[in-house]
Design a protein around this nucleic acid. Structure first.
Length: 143
DNA sequence: CGTGAGCGA
């Protein structure tokens, strides 16, 4: 059975509404009577070497993400966030480039592209507030 | 069911 491709296509089609939720109201057949939420979520386009990649497949690993983004620049770090308890991929990851140029190139090169049969989205990551309440971890500064 | 939006050990 070749249903994997069909599943990927459906998933990709479903994710097409990721950045245009304002016009993808499932409760309306056409954007005539738009709700009060005509405003769309402003993308945190804050220049940073940290890239947040979402829409990854469950089977996409860190190497796959790194290899996918290494074609647009030298990836210093790439990690697909997998759950610590279940061990399965959460479906998103982070990629750090050497410079902002490579990061921008990576975003513009991989944002909206396919990876492992799923449409992935790359954007600048946000600065994390503090570190998790771990007591046996070195302070921030590893990266 | 790793079921699908998201921001990290």
């Amino acid at each position: 059975m070749a249903m994997k491709a069909a599943t990927a296509a459906i998933s990709a089609n479903y994710q097409m509404c990721r950045g245009i939720r304002a016009f993808c109201s499932s409760s309306s057949t056409f954007p005539f009577n738009l709700p009060k939420t005509n405003i769309e979520k402003p993308p945190p386009a804050e220049p940073s070497t940290n890239l947040f990649v979402s829409g990854l497949s469950k089977r996409t690993t860190t190497e796959g993400l790194r290899d996918a983004f290494a074609k647009f620049g030298e990836v210093l770090h790439a990690r697909v966030m997998t759950d610590r308890v279940s061990g399965y991929s959460k479906g998103y990851g982070f990629v750090r480039y050497a410079t902002l140029q490579e990061a921008e190139a990576g975003i513009k090169g991989m944002d909206g592209q396919f990876l492992d049969g799923w449409v992935i989205f790359a954007e600048y990551a946000r600065p994390r507030p503090p570190v998790p309440p771990l007591n046996n971890r070195p302070p921030q500064g590893q990266w």
